[in-house]
Design a protein around this nucleic acid. Structure first.
Lengths: 234, 234
DNA sequence: AATATAAGTGTTATTTTGACATTTATTAAG
DNA sequence: CTTAATAAATGTCAAAATAACACTTATATT
């Protein structure tokens, strides 16, 4: 067999949009790019796909390099391929987005890459089309979280309803009625109430909950309806 | 500036999953592949991305080659990049899916590529990972159509409510109650009732409707709720 | 004139939603 | 020890949305 003739070969990279939550804010993990072009500028964590890897393997490897974590939630966002997106050489980038509980992540962080968390309200200028990737990832997160219990990936194993609600409020940048919120969340029957309470944030303390992992896996793809008036999602 | 060193460059292709509807069945457009490997086997319409094109431009060009049509609904599905997916040489494929009214398309068809419509129940074995692409595209179509008025892209300008319902029933492989269906569809206020009737399929005739294109564009991204118990979508 | 066919339409009971306020547990302060 | 302050937890009710259900209408055919 002969190879396909007269076709241009291009570089293929992965870029990871890594969202994290620390109990207060929704954040994005960025690194200072270590090589030219745009060396020293803020960038998504990325890398080239190796000859024997598929995209998921490459994304996992890159994610592990940066965070030290494995088995994270990960999903392909979109392939970006405008001819000039990397001025050095045409490079197609497959964007993945990932969700991390920041506090868990901090124990394992590799500091080799000067990674930093940025609140979504204070994102610096990013290289290439990474800004577009982040914006699209935010939209996709909002869309997906409106129908699927994806935001649990941002929380520790044990969490409280007020913490969960706070997270939803961060993602949708709005406030929910806590009575209606807890009714909807609990009606999914994905949560298991624990006996102990979290007492950092209030005198009374809030009961911890855990995911029912089995139900979570089984029902993950079903359509929930957690967000009132989901309205103008994409 | 020097180029990125020691990285492998690969081919980048587009493959188009083209769904069509002829008033009766939901169908998929396939071609007989014209070159090796797998010459003569059934395949999605595809082609390599050219040096100056972005993905959308490449997908439009490829789509026009096959169908003669422009301005079709088109959306990136997913990038496929397993190392061995094309045995000839590593090729990344960006899959796009498109929606066409078959009867409109037939006037413009280019017969150069031996394209044929296949009912979704009778799809032949396809080359490479095209089978996976088609399956994923079907899931995405069902998912998207549950929340957005996307299926109108499969219909002619003028269509009847029974035709529309039939289309939804094909996509979801189920039956809907026509009273509830028409109430939901009409409550979107996206349809404009016409004065004339379609009289091929019944003695009484069914009123034609047209899309209110302006509202359609404005409200396209809003979440509708057309499908009862959307259940286990992805 | 009678019949057959598919289109078109309305009601009701049930479920889901969104708006809203009070009670409870605990710590801190006086 | 009593009081005050704080955030958590919980219930009701009216309105809206949904799902289930059957009859009438227009027309072509016989």
């Amino acid at each position: 067999m002969t190879k396909y003739q007269h076709q241009k070969r291009v570089l293929v990279a992965i870029d990871c949009i890594i969202f994290g939550f620390d109990g207060a804010d929704l954040k994005l993990l960025l690194i200072k790019r270590g090589f030219e072009p745009e060396k020293g500028k803020w960038s998504l964590m990325g890398g080239f796909v190796k000859a024997t890897e598929n995209f998921e393997q490459a994304a996992s490897r890159i994610l592990k390099q940066l965070t030290g974590l494995e088995g994270l939630y990960m999903e392909q966002l979109l392939a970006f391929g405008d001819p000039g997106r990397d001025p050095m050489e045409r490079t197609v980038s497959i964007a993945y987005f990932s969700l991390i509980d920041i506090l868990q992540y901090e124990k394992q962080i590799s500091h080799e890459y000067h990674a930093e968390w940025f609140s979504l309200h204070e994102i610096p200028r990013l290289i290439f089309d990474h800004q577009d990737m982040v914006e699209l990832a935010r939209e996709k997160l909002r869309y997906k979280a409106a129908f699927h219990p994806i935001l649990f990936e941002l929380l520790p194993q044990k969490f409280t309803l007020p913490q969960l609600q706070h997270l939803y409020e961060e993602v949708y940048n709005t406030r929910f009625d806590k009575r209606n919120f807890s009714r909807k969340i609990l009606s999914t029957e994905l949560l298991v109430k624990q006996k102990d309470k979290e007492k950092e944030n209030s005198k009374k303390g809030a009961y911890y909950y855990k995911l029912n992992k089995k139900k979570y896996k089984i029902h993950f793809h079903e359509i929930l309806n957690i967000i009132p008036n989901p309205g103008n999602l994409h």
